[in-house]
Write a protein that binds this DNA or RNA. Structure first.
Lengths: 338, 338
DNA sequence: CAGCCTTTGACAAGCGCTTGCAAAAAATCA
DNA sequence: TGATTTTTTGCAAGCGCTTGTCAAAGGCTG
């Protein structure tokens, strides 16, 4: 590997000049800068990250934090797509990414500690957002920069984040059903402590309220068949005229679909179903799910851009909202308005 | 952060002695070693990776290579679980992991190049195995160490790998159906160029042959409903008495299940179904799929252990096979032997 | 044309750690 | 006890890069 001395020699300047020239310092004359650049090119020079980091006492890699391992969460293809997006941008900026995972909160925090103290990593991207997250506390205490994907649980205008407009997405999904004649629409969710879910629910409620229709909520995880059937039986008893569901994500939608499909009476109702995330599950369901795409890769990309852009810690935070988009498949039918 | 000088000072020795003591060099007397260790402990000392790497001209991070981005592949939860396993082990060995991804083969190779030349990464784990992989070529050319998860496409006893015994898994799955009275069993796959699939198929064939039963093969991707129905119609016409399917993975099994379920006649056949991977899809299907678990996290762990263990490149390669295990759910019924 | 300011580039120190080499200390032996 | 070996420790150089400081060179003005 060529070192900076080699390119300096070839360009006929000192290493320090070469260094400055390569980072585009205006203190070096343009001709020299070009000469150095040419030499670097010719020698196929690339700086050694370790040396660079050591000298700058910084790091060219950014840490990507996965949520604490919880099987269900973890099997969500979402994360990989976000990681892809992040990595893409990082590489193009000459950075690398490294992962922080953990089987428990403590382990995660510890791993992050190691990355900060030993790895000198100064920028993190959180792939999730949670209330009272010890990870966030640690990050803040260590004065490192971080951007979260999702809506920050608090201080949302003090920290950088990228997110979808989940409230709007909720409204749009609901409106989609309304537009097709549905009036009795149920919002199906599993865990309101997740910001995504409560936001989408808010959106749903807004849409319903606008048409002066009553909320119909159903919380259910569909963990086993028996309890699912029981829950749905009770639900339909209370709301016999429901024609559509807005399910908070497509995994949940799929589960609902399964139990619906499996009961002749319910199947006959042909309830419409709109979901979120547009992941592989939407395609795998039958009928395929109409779903609100949220573009995880894009989320990752935007997060990485923010992370790579602002280095001064005391700068104003950035927030970017990535758009969503309904992709129509076959799980929604129009009904004649009653 | 405490540096090695600090601990040296506190222990009353020179930095070099401290360094040697901390790496456990036997050239340092035991008492001093202990004194240094104690000082390090007290100061909460941890070495700076960058400095360490620079001095040793090595790297304490290992590169994890994802397959080239192909949407279907990428939405497989498998990868994240392997990564989890890898990360777990790496962290506990004081290493970090960094990701290599790419939208094309060229991009991937380029990214890996950067990691090697600029990042000084000397060890990689490939999360996939493919024939004529340019990544492998590059890795070999650069004389870096790598271990692959899956069966190496060639030279399988020259390179380290970790894998399941997919042939045996195929046999076991088939035998599971045989044991329950099935005789007309179909093997469903999508792409034989993948080692996993061809291996599992081999196992299926072995089991069938042992009972002197004929192979029944079906290649189908179930990409859209119409073509799926068509394919199955043709299939059942040719093999009207099939009672069970061995599907090469649970995503495929799920798709099959969907189209089967959706046709009253086929549904009535109540075909049994056994799948592989035991991912979230197995749980999501209805009825839930009996599936052969292959423990991706474990695969990752083992791969990481190998990667971290052998540093001399000229050492003999290691191969480890992680066991599989059938987890019974509801997609297999016993049939009375005819 | 002398004096002063500006631009340009080199020198050298240092980031935190490792390691070859040699000096000091301890242990052994005659 | 002195010589010799063995053990233990310190010195200093160096990994590849950045950057503060300063000298040299060139351009102005009066």
């Amino acid at each position: 590997m060529a070192t900076i001395k080699d390119v300096a020699a070839r360009a006929g300047v000192s290493p320090s000049t070469a260094s400055r020239a390569l980072r585009g310092s205006t203190v070096i004359s343009k001709p020299t800068r070009e000469r150095v650049a040419k030499a670097a090119q010719a020698l196929n020079y690339a700086p050694d990250f370790n040396a660079q980091n050591l000298a700058k006492n910084a790091s060219s890699t950014i840490g990507v934090v996965l949520p604490v391992d919880h099987h269900e969460i973890f099997s969500n293809p979402f994360f990989l797509e976000m990681i892809r997006g992040i990595n893409e941008i990082c590489i193009s900026h000459g950075s690398m990414t490294t992962l922080a995972t953990g089987i428990s909160s403590e382990e995660l925090v510890h791993n992050i500690d190691v990355m900060i103290t030993q790895g000198h990593i100064r920028t993190f991207i959180l792939l999730y957002s949670e209330k009272d997250d010890p990870v966030v506390k640690r990050l803040a205490a260590a004065h490192v920069q971080y951007v979260v994907i999702g809506k920050p649980a608090q201080d949302s205008n003090q920290i950088s984040y990228v997110n979808n407009d989940n409230v709007q997405a909720g409204t749009d999904a609901t409106q989609y059903l309304l537009d097709r004649g549905h009036r009795q629409i149920c919002f199906l969710y599993s865990d309101l402590s997740k910001m995504v879910q409560s936001d989408r629910m808010l959106g749903y409620q807004r849409a319903m309220m606008q048409d002066q229709l009553p909320d119909i909520l159903l919380q259910e995880r569909f963990e086993d068949h028996a309890s699912s059937v029981q829950a749905l039986t009770a639900f339909f008893a209370a709301h016999p005229t429901v024609t559509g569901f807005v399910a908070v994500d497509d995994m949940l939608a799929m589960k609902l679909q399964q139990v619906l499909h499996n009961n002749p009476v319910w199947k006959q109702r042909q309830c419409s179903l709109i979901a979120f995330n547009n992941s592989i599950f939407s395609d795998l369901a039958h009928p395929m799910l109409t779903s609100v795409a949220v573009f995880p890769q894009r989320l990752g990309e935007e997060a990485a851009k923010i992370a790579l852009a602002t280095h001064p810690t005391d700068e104003l935070p950035t927030a970017v909202i990535v758009p969503h988009q309904i992709v129509a498949r076959h799980s929604v039918r129009a009904v004649s308005a009653n």
